[in-house]
Amino acid sequence: MPDISQTAAVTLNHYLALSAIVFTIGMLCVLLRRNLIVMLMGIELMLNAVNLTFVAFAHYSSDISGQIMVFFVMTVAAAEAGVGLALAVSIFKRFKEVNIKFLEHLKG
């Protein structure tokens, strides 16, 4: 019987498991939902999961470089959200619809 106080500490594996769960949920959000905006939210979830991995590795290996990478990921994520939402607005203006279920004609 292992000592409870020894085994209960939060390790790197806990953070990696949480990150994997959130990444999976984000990917399912992109694959299963048909609303463009919710699909973009799924991408944000995936990027956040990766950020969590970076910060956890930075903490557990005492190397600050992981946090620098999080900066870059955050900037790219903000830019990606801006472009994605601009595309959604543009699509809405042309098709009057943001649900990709109804975007079935290649010719507008």
Binding site: N51, A77, A78, L85
Partner: peptide, 22 residues
């Protein structure tokens, strides 16, 4: 995880700017 600054940036950029945009 001792990443105070990243936590602040997360609150400002994500919970602030990106969510308002959405």
């Amino acid at each position: 995880l001792d990443a105070d600054f990243i936590a602040g940036v997360q609150l400002i950029v994500y919970a602030g700017a990106v969510m308002v945009l959405f």
